[in-house]
Simulated assay, not measured.
Amino acid sequence: MFLKIASVGKAYGTPEGALVRALDDVTIDVKSNEFLTLLGPSGCGKTTLLKCLAGFEDMDGGDIILEGKSLRSVPAHRRPLNTVFQNYALFPHMTIAQNIGYGLDVAGVKKPERDRRVGEALEMVGLAGFGARRPTQLSGGQQQRVALARSLILKPRILLLDEPLSALDRKMRESMQIELKNLQHTVGITFIFVTHDQEEALVMSDRIAVFDHGKLQQIGNSTEIYDTPANEFVANFVGTSNLFAGKVIERNGRLVTVETANGRRLVAASDRFAIGDSVKLVLRPEHLHIAGSDEAASDHAILGTIADTVFVGSVIRVHVDVGFGRMAILHHQYDRTGLGATLRPGTPVKIVYSPEAAHLIPAGGA
């Protein structure tokens, strides 16, 4: 295994005398040359884990093992890892070339070699010819590339990135997501990336590790995290979900019938769970659609009334009152014509879905 995060724990004392577990027995096997994203809300432990990896925080328990060697007693400046911070931390009085070459100067690299490697780094991040400029003469996206080049020029085994795109506007952030992913493939080293942005994680990552309250909730690729969330937290945090709680009352091959407390019966395809199990059925908004008048009835249809619609560009987000105090959200593709023009509050509708699109999770969470 390239990098093993083994049962890492970290707790902080509060002014009131309580103990908060920022990391609770976290274990992750990180692959060589992969793009791993640590995803979760503020205070979930993802940045604390990054600091433990970098050597900026001591662990209360566990170990970090790189290619068979423990890093626990290795100081931060001796670890073969570099960090790109959220604010880039560029030196305003230095040129771009001086900023990028700073680490080489500290390491005593001679000027001809230093200049060659700085030139290569500038080329790598698309900033050839910018070496004489100052950080204030660059855009936010360009400054972010300088911070990347400064970290990559030292050829770390692992690059740690602490929400480096958060200060950029939406279009620049989307552009940099693709650039950063392509750069990771080019340099061929492991990236461990921290973000609270679900879309960012889904777009960029080979795998995503989802955290909440210091615990690792689920790890997998983007499709696994989105399509088969391990528990209710992941289902709600990564994307939008409609959840229906109930008990399994029937199984017919892979088709499982779930009856909710108010008597509604829903069907899902699943190889898990037995009759009598308490579950929650997860349906993503894009997996639901409003049946047309000529569409055949279905055992897994949900009757309701449109409560509200929200236009968000490519889709209309439809809020449907399905009774018993429940609201379901579905996405209707906006095309200027057809059904979209008839989506008015108060309109009775029938929502249908494929059982293959439904996903079951334990009612208790993980």
Rank of each mutant, 00 (worst) to 15 (best):
V8L: 15
K10V: 00
G17D: 10
V20Q: 09
T27P: 08
D29W: 01
K31L: 13
S32T: 09
N33P: 00
T37P: 12
T37Y: 13
G43K: 01
C44Y: 00
K46V: 10
T48W: 05
L49G: 10
K51S: 14
F56H: 03
E57P: 05
D63Y: 04
R72K: 15
V74P: 02
P75D: 01
A76E: 03
A76V: 13
V84R: 08
Q86H: 01
Y88K: 00
Y88H: 08
L90P: 02
H93R: 01
I100K: 02
D105A: 13
K111C: 00
R114C: 03
R117H: 10
V118S: 12
V118L: 10
L122H: 02
V125Y: 08
G126C: 07
A128N: 02
P135L: 06
T136H: 15
L138K: 00
G140L: 12
L152I: 12
L165A: 06
A167T: 04
L168V: 02
L168Y: 09
M172Q: 06
R173S: 04
E174C: 09
S175Q: 15
S175C: 03
Q177R: 15
E179A: 07
K181V: 01
N182R: 15
I189F: 09
I192E: 09
F193D: 02
E200A: 03
M204H: 02
A209P: 07
V210S: 09
H213S: 13
G214P: 06
K215H: 09
Q217V: 05
Q217Y: 01
S222G: 14
T223L: 14
A230M: 11
N236S: 13
F244Y: 13
G246I: 09
R251T: 12
N252Q: 14
G253H: 11
G253E: 11
G263T: 03
R265K: 15
V267F: 04
A269I: 05
R272M: 12
G276N: 06
K280P: 07
L281N: 04
E286A: 07
H287E: 12
I290S: 05
D294K: 10
A296H: 03
I302D: 07
L303V: 12
G304I: 10
T305D: 11
T305L: 10
F311C: 01
V312I: 14
F324K: 03
H331G: 05
R336M: 14
T337D: 14
G338K: 00
L339D: 12
L343P: 04
G346Q: 09
E356Q: 14
A358T: 05
L360A: 11
